[in-house]
Amino acid sequence: MRPVLLASALTLAALPGWAGDVTVFAAASLKNALDEVAAEFAQRTGNTTAISYAGSNALARQIIEGAPADIFISASTDWMDEVEKAGLTRQRGDLLGNTLVLIAHGTDAEAVPISSDTDLAGMLDGGKLAMALVEAVPAGQYGKAALENLGLWDGVQADVAQSDNVRAALALVAAGEAPLGIVYATDAAAEDNVTVVGTFPPDSHPAITYSAALLTGADGAGRAFYDALSGDPARAIFENHGFVVTD
């Protein structure tokens, strides 16, 4: 996403009346990286940022129901489409990509190839498979699609422990409450007490695309932050956290 800039973020922030809080609704998987982006933005422009993290589905519904926000960053273009259909976006674009992985509790789990031959039910050994809500949250939807395409869903469906968002699923595995989980690679990298044991083939699920939008209620500070998301400092931060930056 490279939007046409009316002026630089620094210039916008320097104009009288442009400084102020920016409210961002963002997919839970973005927390570590986006917190850094917001800190860099605040240091550079003087604008503070309040970020609400949750599943993209919940955030989209809140925005549609009237929750005040300047920016929405969704882990699914489908949920962004819903916000756009409601007439609440001024500008949107694809921002990032990610990878879907299988994680295990602890730091010494052995890697396994993920394919239609993977004995995922056997690996669970009576435990639970932590996933975000499989019918609503993007990480859960991608995970279910991958398992279905690989012919593994029926064998583990009864053992899936669903969470409100992908970070909650990550927490279940990190705490040892579930032996395995399906999350994004960037989530696994943010947690020391899990190990990536396998990566799902990219063609087993829809492409993971994070879409960002400037919402209709945003002011100049919101515009500045939206533009900053595709700037060089933000790109470097996202890449450092393992995201794939969309050109």
Rank of each mutant, 00 (worst) to 15 (best):
A27S: 14
T89F: 04
E177T: 14
A33S: 14
R167V: 08
D78S: 15
D81C: 05
Q43I: 01
G222L: 06
S56Y: 06
T77A: 13
A221Q: 00
G220P: 00
G97P: 14
G127D: 08
F225A: 10
L59W: 07
K85R: 15
V4R: 09
A146Y: 03
T216H: 08
L30P: 08
I182H: 06
M80I: 02
V196M: 08
T209K: 09
G222W: 01
T45N: 02
E110V: 14
S29Q: 12
V245F: 15
L215D: 01
S163R: 02
R223D: 02
F243G: 08
L215E: 00
V183P: 12
A28D: 12
V183C: 06
L6F: 05
I103Y: 08
K85E: 13
P16W: 07
R92T: 14
S74N: 07
A9G: 03
K85S: 14
D227G: 00
L150G: 03
T77V: 12
L59Y: 05
A146M: 08
A169P: 12
A171V: 07
P206I: 06
D203W: 04
T77W: 03
W18R: 01
R167I: 05
F41K: 03
A171W: 01
V183M: 08
I208H: 03
A130S: 13
S230P: 10
L102H: 04
Q91S: 09
D192Q: 08
F225W: 02
M123H: 11
D203E: 14
T199A: 08
N98L: 13
G198P: 11
V112T: 07
L170K: 07
P138W: 10
A14Q: 05
L5I: 06
G140I: 10
P202E: 15
S52G: 06
E177M: 13
F225Q: 01
A174S: 15
T89M: 10
A189L: 13
T246E: 10
W79L: 15
G198I: 08
